[in-house]
């Protein structure tokens, strides 16, 4: 087991009076792909936002390469090498496809990813690079969202439901591209509703249920029964 790149310790999160996460503990090893599953409203997106610096957390609740980053702003977290592909893609409508990618690289980290390499990964984006990002199909927009995160040359990349609302062939294409993305030593957390997909791409899996971790295990050993129990909370 490598050094953990990310350690989450006793993390909680609130929206006003509503508590969305309770006492989450989680680790991601260097180079590991971790999957997170859970029903709608379980707190998966909230957890991604907490890691990325978009929620208000206690500094020690999120540690990245040994540094307490829970209290940092999202731009400071990004500078340290964590990138998020947000749920629902969230491209900038006022920016062209190319500008959406360039702005992802603005944190100024060195690494293998450049505009050219993103275009190699998703050639269709090169053809459409001058277009408004809103003119793309859902799948193409997802490619931009992934490319935008890669442009930051992150060491840890967070994917929040990259297949949501996309046609099966597109999902297949995106998942086929995934090994080429995380293969280079990048660590990843993948939030995925499709449990089979989640198990096939990850080495370990966490299940969230109503803001708590209900299951943690190695992806090749957890049983379907354990997962359904953790997912739906049926005892």
């Amino acid at each position: 087991m490598h050094e953990p790149i990310l350690q989450i310790v006793g993390l909680s999160a609130h929206y006003g009076d509503f508590q969305a996460l309770y006492d989450i503990d989680m680790t991601v090893a260097e180079g590991e792909v971790l999957a997170i599953i859970g029903a709608n409203g379980a707190g998966k997106t909230t957890l991604m936002w907490s890691i990325a610096g978009l929620m208000r957390n206690g500094a020690d609740q999120v540690r990245y390469r040994g540094e307490a980053i829970g209290g940092l702003r999202a731009d400071q977290v990004a500078e340290r090498g964590i990138a998020l592909v947000p749920e629902g893609r969230q491209l900038f409508p006022s920016l062209s496809v190319e500008e959406n990618l360039i702005i992802g690289g603005q944190v100024g980290r060195d690494g293998p990813w450049s505009l050219r390499r993103v275009f190699e990964l998703f050639p269709i984006l090169q053809e459409r690079r001058k277009q408004a990002s809103t003119s793309l199909s859902g799948g193409q927009q997802q490619m931009v969202a992934i490319g935008r995160a890669l442009m930051a040359n992150p060491d840890l990349i967070l994917f929040d439901e990259i297949s949501l609302g996309l046609a099966p062939v597109i999902i297949r294409d995106i998942y086929q591209a995934l090994p080429g993305i995380v293969g280079g030593g990048m660590s990843a957390i993948i939030v995925e509703q499709d449990i089979t997909k989640a198990l096939s791409v990850s080495s370990r899996i966490y299940c969230l249920q109503e803001g708590r971790v209900s299951l943690e295990g190695a992806s090749d050993t957890v049983s379907r029964e354990e997962i359904s129990r953790a997912y739906f909370g049926i005892e």
Binding site: A52, G53, L54, R73, A74, D75, A78, E79, A83, L84, P86, Q90, F92, P93, S94, L95, I103, G104, Q106, V107, G108, R148, A152
Partner: peptide, 11 residues
């Protein structure tokens, strides 16, 4: 366009 997502881009 989106303050939160812009912040994720290091802005």
């Amino acid at each position: 366009d989106n303050q939160d997502i812009a912040q994720l881009m290091g802005l």
